[in-house]
């Protein structure tokens, strides 16, 4: 993925949880100290946004580790997975390196949690994002969203079911 210009400042206003049928707010966030990823550049293929509270979850088989293992299945559906938390890029870099993650972690760091707010998944009192999942279709429309209780790893079944629905639709449209 190449270097990308900032397309627009992410909206800072808090909204309620976005769900199926809502247009996915665009964003451009740093994935590494010198690379940004915008949602718009991924148009044409499904995108999975996985908001999670913080890097360095204490269990060995945490949510991001699980998605790392399931990545081939997401790729089979031509879907791009993006992890998002309010941690900074250097924290993400260390976390990602230690866990050998093979997908980008985006830093919703400054203004803090702005993208999470736009999707309605920022936890004001805690200063972190909800544990929330969004599946966005190739046209930039949210097709499925889910907020998990913060301490419960939601797994991948909901994401996979939403991706299945997208594939089926595509088949039928053919």
């Amino acid at each position: 993925m190449g270097k990308v210009e900032i397309v627009s400042a992410p909206p800072a206003k808090a909204t309620s949880l976005l769900g199926a049928g809502d247009v996915a707010p665009d964003f451009s966030l740093p994935a590494t100290p010198d690379q940004r990823i915008s949602l718009r550049e991924l148009r044409g293929r499904p995108v999975i946004l996985a908001f999670y509270p913080a890097d360095w979850s204490p269990v060995c088989s945490d949510q991001m580790g699980l998605y790392n293992e399931i990545l081939p299945e997401f790729s089979r559906q031509n879907a791009e997975l993006l992890g998002i938390s309010v941690d900074g890029v250097w924290c993400h870099l260390a976390f990602s390196g230690q866990r050998k993650l093979h997908f980008p972690l985006l830093a919703d760091f400054e203004p803090k949690g702005a993208v999470a707010r736009a999707y309605g998944v920022y936890r004001d009192g805690d200063g972190v994002t909800e544990r929330a999942l969004f599946v966005i279709d190739g046209g930039g429309v949210i097709r499925w969203s889910y907020v998990s209780p913060i301490g419960v790893n939601p797994g991948a079944d909901g994401i996979l079911a939403a991706l299945d629905d997208l594939s089926r639709e595509k088949e039928m449209a053919r």
Binding site: S61, Q63, L66, I70, V152, N153, A156, G158, L160
Partner: peptide, 13 residues
């Protein structure tokens, strides 16, 4: 794959 589809969210589930 059956686990992934059934909501296995880490090990053990």
């Amino acid at each position: 794959r059956s686990g992934m589809r059934s909501g296995v969210n880490g090990t053990p589930t």
